[in-house]
């Protein structure tokens, strides 16, 4: 999750910054040396990045057991055909999407609001920012363990809090689907909202104040300014963070794995995500070939997301 998040934070930094890409002017110096510069990266990248990605596709056409990785039996597309009728896979796919949505939407909305507030001149603004970034500095594993405690059925803080509202103790790790998913999503929301707020804040600070001044002269109130100036200016950032969050949830693993402490993701698979399913198939049930098919399918889903990403950026570029 982190990797992609940060990757995208950076992508924002680069591409979104200039809709009309400035062509780099190359220095007219030793072009042969250039290969030496890129070689270390590409050698490592090819071995550990690109090749495994492609080889996953080849493995997915085989039956391979974790117990005997040297023996690959050709099965053609069998792993794929069984995938699309497999209700556990489809369940994981749906869960991945719904958890992604219920973690991303509130998270990004709140981040936007918080960023707006942080953008006011105030005392202790740095202290607020640091405090809000503390969840981000807490690892996913630690965060999930902490929330596991907060959500404990009999002695947890959340159920104790809810009992004031007449709510019976909820067994969050094995509750009806929406409840369990909400609990898992809350882990993501807690950890990432502050971070996203800072990203939005950075964007807001880059908006020229003249725009607000002009709007104020036209009689726009603060809310109108927020809607008419801040939001449109931040649109590329927002679009990207939405897509980024979606890709992030494609990779969601630690939260569902440690929250329910197991690969089932809840007694009824309420929050078994795709990555969790991949892990269960490959490393618990030893079906590496099948797991490779899951991975490759996830790859396709990701590529679709990338294309959507590109289309959204283009649409925005045209409008700009």
């Amino acid at each position: 999750m982190t990797a992609v998040r940060e990757a995208h934070a950076g992508v924002l930094a680069g591409t979104v910054g200039h809709p009309r890409k400035r062509r780099p002017r190359y220095a007219l110096i030793g072009s042969k040396a250039a290969y030496l510069y890129v070689a270390p990266f590409f050698v490592v990248f090819a071995i550990f990045g690109l090749y495994p990605l492609l080889y996953t596709g080849w493995i997915s056409l085989h039956d391979v057991s974790l117990l005997n990785i040297n023996k690959m039996t050709w099965v053609g597309f069998h792993n794929y055909t069984s995938l699309w009728t497999n209700h556990f896979f489809l369940n994981a796919l749906t869960n991945t999407i719904t958890i992604g949505i219920i973690s991303a939407v509130p998270q990004l909305l709140m981040a936007l609001g918080i960023a707006h507030l942080l953008n006011y001149r105030m005392k202790g603004s740095i202290a607020f920012r640091i405090a809000m970034l503390m969840p981000y500095a807490t690892s996913v594993v630690a965060t999930t363990l902490i929330f596991g405690e907060l959500y404990s059925r009999d002695f947890g803080f959340v159920n104790w809090f809810l009992h004031f509202f007449g709510v019976e103790p909820i067994n969050w790790v094995n509750a009806p689907k929406w409840q369990s998913q909400l609990a898992v999503a809350s882990i993501v929301i807690w950890r990432w909202t502050g971070y996203n707020a800072l990203i939005y804040l950075a964007g807001m600070q880059a908006i020229p104040h003249e725009l607000y001044e002009a709007a104020a002269i036209d009689g726009a109130n603060r809310w109108q300014q927020f809607r008419k100036i801040t939001i449109p200016s931040l649109r590329p950032t927002i679009l990207f963070t939405v897509v980024v969050s979606t890709i992030g949830s494609m990779q969601m693993f630690a939260e569902p794995y440690l929250f329910g402490s197991g690969t089932n993701g809840g007694g009824n698979g309420q929050y078994q995500t795709l990555t969790l399913y991949l892990y269960q198939q490959g490393w618990q049930y030893n079906h590496l070939g099948f797991a490779a098919a899951v991975a490759w399918t996830m790859l396709v889903v990701c590529l679709v997301l990338v294309i959507i990403n590109a289309m959204l950026t283009n649409a925005r570029g045209r409008r700009g």
């Binding site: 556990f88 094995n174 007694g267 009824n268 198939q281 049930y285």
Partner: peptide
């Protein structure tokens, strides 16, 4: 699945079927 029957009042027959489906995942 027994936990589901116990904790969620899941229908035992449904739970049994779901367990068998899960076992198929294991044995492949």
């Amino acid at each position: 699945e027994l936990g589901n029957v116990e904790q969620q009042g899941k229908n035992p027959q449904q739970a049994w079927n779901d367990a068998l489906a899960k076992i198929k995942q294991v044995t492949g």
